[in-house]
Simulated scan of single mutants.
Amino acid sequence: MHRTALGTITAALTTSLVGSALLTLSPTAAGAATTTHPERGLVVECTGKVAGQHVAVSLYENSRYGNELQVVFDHGDGPGKGRSQEAKLVRAGHVDTTIRVAQQAVRITGTAIRTQHVKRVRSTHEDTTAVGTHRRLSTDLEVTYRERTAPLDCDTAFRYRLQVTHAG
């Protein structure tokens, strides 16, 4: 699988995760009141190659909707594997989490440290608006699969603090 294809998978994973959260936020009844709530978390998206296979990894934390780890391999036997969990995926800048894919353990380890780079953001999706900040993370992550370890390239890595408003 080419890097462009893995990038598409990674983008789809984030769109799926973040988009699902935004769609979940939509009021179910017409005329519902406007509500605002805070959301904090992180998004880390990585690609790499381990044990001869390309892999896409997504770590997603959301204070309101939970945390999720997704791992997708280029081995053609399905969409990969995802897992939701209550425990944080990144603790004090350290990552050490495991998920099973195709009956094999996949371990993601390393660091995701906050930097000083902060970007103000505003995003609107249907009747939901999110306003806040993204703080870039400096990552040094690796994946272990079938007793082989390889570095991950994490192009997208940031913590976010948002005020999310739903119009009714």
Rank of each mutant, 00 (worst) to 15 (best):
R91A: 15
T36E: 15
G80R: 02
A11G: 12
G31S: 05
A5W: 01
H166T: 15
T24F: 02
K88T: 08
M1V: 11
L22T: 11
D153G: 01
R136S: 14
S123W: 01
V72Q: 12
C154R: 02
Y65D: 13
V57I: 14
G110C: 10
G168N: 11
A32F: 08
D77T: 11
V164T: 13
S58E: 14
T47D: 12
C154I: 05
I99E: 11
V18C: 00
H166K: 10
D155V: 06
D155H: 03
V57M: 04
E86W: 01
Q53I: 07
I113T: 15
G168H: 09
S16K: 04
E39F: 00
E142I: 00
L59D: 05
I99Q: 02
G132H: 07
A11S: 15
T35H: 04
K49S: 15
L152Q: 06
E45A: 15
R159L: 14
R83S: 14
P79C: 04
S123L: 13
A56V: 14
A33C: 05
T35Q: 14
R146M: 09
T10R: 06
L25K: 03
V118R: 08
R122W: 02
V55H: 02
S58P: 00
R120N: 15
K88M: 06
D96P: 00
K119R: 10
E86D: 15
G48V: 07
G168Y: 07
V95T: 08
S138T: 12
D77M: 07
G52W: 02
H2Q: 13
A51E: 06
T15E: 12
L42M: 11
V90N: 08
V57C: 06
E39Y: 00
V18G: 04
S26G: 09
F73Q: 03
T111G: 09
K119L: 06
Q70K: 11
T24Y: 04
I108P: 06
T115K: 01
R107L: 12
G48P: 10
T35D: 13
A21C: 07
R122M: 10
V72K: 02
E147F: 01
V57T: 12
T24H: 05
R114Y: 01
T128P: 00
T28F: 03
R122Y: 08
T115I: 07
